[in-house]
């Protein structure tokens, strides 16, 4: 069960065929409704994540209520809260341990940009160390906004080609973060 490889399209035949497209779509849909998050909660936003898990907002409606604290099982890294420079290598390590396909959601001002903590010890946004797919503004964001972010990730997952993770662009993106 290695990463699924689909035979390369014959030359001179551009675009994926009907089967490949609808297969892509089916798997995209499956992935989007089964995004198991890894809540990397360091501070305040983690408390709002609890509210998102709670009965009022209920992240499980999107099929995401099974938090996988093991990075191997997670599809979505939710970085919530301030990431200090001491923590940065840990975040990167967790990201590296995750299996493809993986998405990253930066929740809140601190994770996205450092927020008010423009200080010597705080990383000014996790996109300096790992690629981020969706940023959620707010300090902390309301649960509604976190759900918005999750839905945006679902949207990304649905529209992602199965082959995207093998493309050169994606490898370049990773390489720009010194991954692999």
């Amino acid at each position: 069960m290695k990463e699924v490889t689909i035979a390369e399209a014959p030359q001179g035949h551009s675009g994926s065929g009907f089967f490949a497209t609808s297969f892509d779509e089916a798997i995209g849909l499956a992935r989007s409704y089964s995004l198991w998050p890894l809540p990397f909660a360091t501070s305040c936003c983690g408390i709002e994540f609890m509210a998102t898990m709670g009965a009022h907002y209920d992240i499980s409606r999107f099929g995401s209520e099974r938090p996988s604290f093991s990075p191997r099982q997670a599809d979505l890294l939710m970085v919530m809260g301030t990431i200090a420079k001491k923590m940065a290598p840990v975040v990167k390590q967790v990201y590296l341990q995750m299996a493809e396909p993986r998405w990253v959601l930066a929740v809140g001002a601190c994770a996205s940009s450092g927020g008010i903590f423009d200080s010597y010890s705080v990383l000014q946004g996790i996109d300096r160390i790992i690629p981020v797919d969706v940023y959620v503004p707010g300090c902390p964001p309301r649960p509604e906004q976190i759900i918005d972010g999750l839905m945006q990730i679902q949207h990304l997952a649905q529209n992602e080609k199965l082959r995207r993770r093998n493309t050169d662009e994606y490898q370049e993106l990773l390489a720009s973060y010194n991954i692999q």
Binding site: K85, K86, D118, Y120, S121, V122, Q124
Partner: peptide, 26 residues
């Protein structure tokens, strides 16, 4: 205890800046 071991200065001293020197969007 709070800062990384590799830090080579004592950050609360008045002579050191508060800001993260690497911040670009400011």
């Amino acid at each position: 205890i709070l800062n990384i071991e590799e830090m080579d200065y004592f950050p609360m001293r008045k002579e050191y800046p508060l800001e993260d020197a690497t911040r670009e969007d400011k």
